[in-house]
Design a binder for these strands. Structure first.
Length: 291
DNA sequence: CATATGTCCTGAGAGC
DNA sequence: TGCTCTCAGGACATAT
């Protein structure tokens, strides 16, 4: 579930590791299958031990830990991964521990952790020459916090796919996932089934505007912790944006915007989409552009 | 080329 | 109670 707001919250949560040196990487005992580490755990260890962390950045839904030699550790939480300073929800799902040099200051963390309940997450070590080909514009679109109407129309406007499905494609725009795609389109008042080719510039303006607003608001609330309780910030505290959801997982409930419509759940590209048929469906739209 | 579908993985919850 | 089944959706591989 972690999307841009959750991943950004994790990034901010571990910023205190900047300036610290990694001294060891351990793979805590687990009865579960190991997550994918590339090129390998041995190589990761060899390359990062002794390196000082220069920065922690984010690209879409990935966190990049920048090392002094120009390489990066890329952490992908995917569905159920967390990047933590402490207090993992379970010991069982601890996948990687990056140990930091001991400064003998009790308040300072001695490590940061990669925890993953389902094992779908990934950790990569990339040298400086691999960063652009793996994470550059050819592979991932511009960050969703930086989109404009012009960028959206340029990158998605030619697609015949429904707008909701196109927003999930990380090659178009990076950072939007299933939850926020529904939320953004609800605020923008746009039918999730509408083909990208049918959107007007005015509608792209609404999408870009609400993309930034919804994601920024969600970051302010430190992301969304759903009913399963999996998502946590770096200190293992839940987020708060779930209390502000307008449509996601609210199928059958009354629309909080118009108080008239009932939130509908449909499936698009094997994923749930939630929307309000009153707020988000314009009369007079030709049926052919609803895909 | 664009778009669609299958796959990985575990835990939660439903139904019997 | 404990079993089996289905579902959740990130990103990418493979198919159309």
């Amino acid at each position: 579930m972690p999307e841009l707001p959750e991943v950004e919250t994790m990034r901010r949560g571990i910023l205190s590791v900047v300036g610290r040196q990694i001294v060891a990487v351990t793979c805590p005992q687990s009865t579960l299958q190991s997550i994918e580490i590339t090129p390998s755990l041995a190589r990761l260890r060899k390359q990062v031990c002794g390196q000082t962390i220069r920065d922690v950045s984010r690209r879409g839904k990935r966190v990049l830990v920048h090392l002094e030699d120009g390489a990066v550790i890329v952490m992908e939480p995917r569905m159920a991964g967390l990047i933590l300073l402490d207090n993992p929800p379970t010991e069982k799902h601890l996948r990687l521990c990056f140990h930091l040099e001991d400064r003998s200051v009790a308040e300072e963390t001695a490590h940061f952790l990669f925890w993953d309940k389902r094992g779908l997450g990934k950790v990569h070590w990339l040298d400086s020459s691999q960063i652009e080909p793996r994470l550059g514009r050819e592979r991932l679109g511009p960050d969703a916090l930086e989109v404009t109407a012009r960028i959206l129309k340029e990158r998605l406007g030619g697609s015949r796919r429904p707008i909701k499905v196109a927003l999930l494609d990380q090659k178009g725009v990076a950072g939007i996932g299933n939850l926020y795609a529904s939320e953004i389109l609800h605020w923008a008042g746009i039918d999730p089934r509408l083909a990208c080719t049918a959107l007007t510039l005015r509608q792209w303006e609404r999408v870009s505007c609400w993309t930034r607003r919804v994601l920024e608001q969600a970051i302010e609330h430190e992301g969304s912790t759903l009913a399963d309780g999996t998502y946590r910030n770096a200190l293992s505290n839940p987020g708060g944006y779930q209390n502000h959801h307008r449509v996601y997982d609210r199928g059958g409930e009354v629309c909080l915007q118009c108080r008239a419509g009932t939130i509908k759940r449909i499936v698009q590209a094997q994923r749930s989409t939630y929307y309000c048929p009153v707020c988000q469906c314009r009369r007079g739209v030709h049926p052919a552009v609803i895909v």
